[in-house]
Design a protein around this nucleic acid. Structure first.
Length: 576
DNA sequence: GCCGTTTTCGGCCCGACTGTTTTCAGTCG
């Protein structure tokens, strides 16, 4: 992603925070936050949009923001930023991240007690002076102290695997000790976002109080933040830090409306409500209303239909054009887990995996797959037990023999071939030609000409797929210094395939880039990169990412039958 | 600050919970 996009997004967030600290509220602040989000999601380089005078074609960017972007790109400065942050202690912005502390509280503390940073805050909380302020009190001080503890001890956001595991644990706990009818995880987890902050659990049942009580007694609970008649929040201690879980209990008649509401995203809901308003309707978590009369709410489908839309899948609800697409009846029929017939990037004990080939085959059959590709590491990946050319060839013989005995299942001979620092492939062509499927990827010299090296690999006649094209590890590593726009363009020209790697720390390509690839006409492979039998279940995360990228079964080669896939792979080699 | 099949001006989503309140502001999602 273009660096300037992220830089500008942070600047507009900072302006929004500064405005709030100065007491400004309302829609100007929201406009800056929206601009920041839009810039974050943008795959196009903001500098290019500016050069071509197309900034204002982006929804959420109007003349005012466009002018400021242009100013910043031209001069490296933005007057507005300097203006609104003037006179604000830099340390105050960090205070806004503390749960329970908002702009009004920060302003009050700064005005009355000269609080300039987190250390000042701790001091006035402890010495009792904060509690003396108007509108503050003992409880409020306690809550802020707890908030401080929470951000200091919380890990970052959760990966999808942790979020799903926790959600399943707490849902089972609520179910087993209450009369709850439906219990479901909503929020960003249901939308399949690559990381999840809080868990949002939604339940229905005849006895809401009992459900709330069951919820707050979850054994991992460290702290109960709030517990009302129908709503509660807890903090739990998981292996990776403190996590917040929110619960809402609603009537069955409003379950659909509540599920829609709590699934979000916030931006999707705002857009939906605005649309409803124009039709003289009002949407809340209790339903769709015309003049205080509820006309929908039992199911999500009802809610969408009440405002004249088809059902919109949760993964699409990001305010990235899905509402317009729904209105025009051109929503994609998203790929489903059941459409997946194969996993085409799997390691075994032959390189750095921990399950044997036989174990993987059995597990894949259990999952209902008809074929898989075994792709061990190559020579240069010595750290990962990479195979020499001879080892790979004898591995191919072994797979050939095994295939003869397998019924209605086929193992494709493959390899995850390193792209070397000088842009070559790690095996000679004669060896690559023996493989059914060649996957190429970068594992070393991340920032040496990554774009050119990957494009070289794409242009190599024997390569089919580029694995984890950006090389990022979510929250840990930004990825190679690579121009994905160019990579996508090159893949489109050479009709090669890009991977969505389903490992929850990779999800690479991500949703935004995978969608861009699809729009450029590039086919996608959704693979787990499994190193053991249990890793095969990661397919779920890759499929969710694909759905967030608007992909259908026709965009994904794992949905092809074995015969169709073999035909495609052969055609790719002929046409190169 | 953005935006337009009622608008280039006047709108902009909606509600729960908490704490400090005697009628409501702040925060959150």
């Amino acid at each position: 992603m273009a660096i300037k996009n992220q830089e500008l997004a942070r600047i507009f967030e900072r302006i929004a925070d500064a405005l709030e600290l100065k007491g400004e509220t309302g829609f100007r602040v929201l406009a800056y936050r929206k601009a920041a989000r839009v810039l974050t999601d943008l795959t196009e380089d903001v500098a290019e949009l500016d050069r071509e005078n197309r900034l204002e074609t982006v929804p959420g960017i109007g003349s005012g923001i466009a002018k400021k972007i242009h100013e910043y790109l031209a001069t490296g400065k933005m007057k507005k930023l300097e203006e609104v942050t003037a006179g604000i202690e830099p340390g105050l912005f960090a205070l806004l991240d503390i749960p329970g502390v908002g702009p009004r509280t920060v302003k009050l503390l700064n005005d009355k007690l000269r609080v300039k940073n987190i250390d000042d805050l701790k001091r006035v909380l402890m010495d009792g002076s904060a509690a003396q302020l108007p509108g503050m009190g003992k409880k409020k001080v306690e809550n802020i102290l707890k908030g401080l503890e929470q951000i200091e001890r919380a890990g970052s956001r959760m990966y999808l695997n942790e979020a799903f595991e926790l959600a399943e644990l707490i849902i089972e706990y609520i179910r087993s000790g209450s009369d709850a009818k439906e219990v479901i995880a909503a929020g960003s987890l249901r939308r399949g976002r690559e990381t999840v902050g809080d868990l949002d659990i939604l339940a229905t049942g005849s006895n809401p109080q009992q459900i709330v009580h069951r919820f707050v007694t979850f054994p991992m609970t460290r702290q109960v933040l709030s517990a009302g008649e129908t709503k509660a929040s807890i903090v739990i201690a998981s292996a990776n830090g403190l996590r917040q879980i929110d619960l809402r209990v609603v009537e069955p008649e409003t379950f659909g409306a509540a599920l829609q509401y709590f699934t979000g995203s916030k931006d999707h809901n705002v857009a939906l409500r605005t649309l409803a308003q124009k039709m003289g309707l009002k949407i809340s978590e209790y339903g769709v209303f015309r003049n205080d009369r509820r006309i929908a709410g039992k199911t999500e489908l009802e809610v969408y239909q009440a405002i004249g839309l088809p059902y919109i899948e949760p993964e699409l609800r990001e305010d990235r054009g899905e509402i317009a697409a729904a209105q025009e009846n051109r929503l994609p029929v998203l790929v489903r887990q059941e459409d997946i017939k194969s996993d085409l990037h799997i390691h075994t004990t032959a390189s750095d995996g921990s399950s044997s080939l036989i174990e993987i085959v059995r597990a894949a059959q259990q999952l209902g797959y008809t074929h898989i590709a075994i792709a061990e590491h190559s020579v240069s990946a010595g750290y990962a037990g990479g195979l020499t050319a001879d080892q790979l060839l004898s591995r191919c013989d072994e797979i050939d023999r095994l295939n003869e005995n397998l019924k209605k299942f086929r193992i494709l001979k493959s390899a995850e071939v390193d792209i070397t620092p000088d842009g070559k492939l790690d095996y000679p062509d004669s060896v690559l030609a023996r493989l059914d499927l060649v996957i190429a990827s970068i594992h070393q010299a991340f920032n040496r000409d990554a774009t050119r090296r990957v494009c070289n690999a794409i242009e190599h006649p024997l390569v089919h797929i580029i694995a984890h094209p950006s090389g990022r590890l979510i929250g840990k590593r930004p990825g190679y210094d690579i121009n994905l726009e160019k990579v996508i363009e090159c893949a489109a020209q050479n009709r090669k395939i890009l991977e969505i790697n389903s490992y929850y720390e990779r999800l690479d390509l991500n949703d935004v880039w995978a969608r861009q690839a699809k729009e450029a006409g590039v086919l996608i492979a959704v693979n787990t990169d499994a190193h053991s039998v249990s890793d095969l279940s990661w397919m779920r995360y890759g499929v969710m990412t694909a759905r967030r990228a608007w992909l259908t079964r026709n965009d994904i080669i794992n949905c092809l039958s074995l015969a169709q896939l073999m035909k495609l792979l052969a055609r790719l080699r002929q046409s190169s």
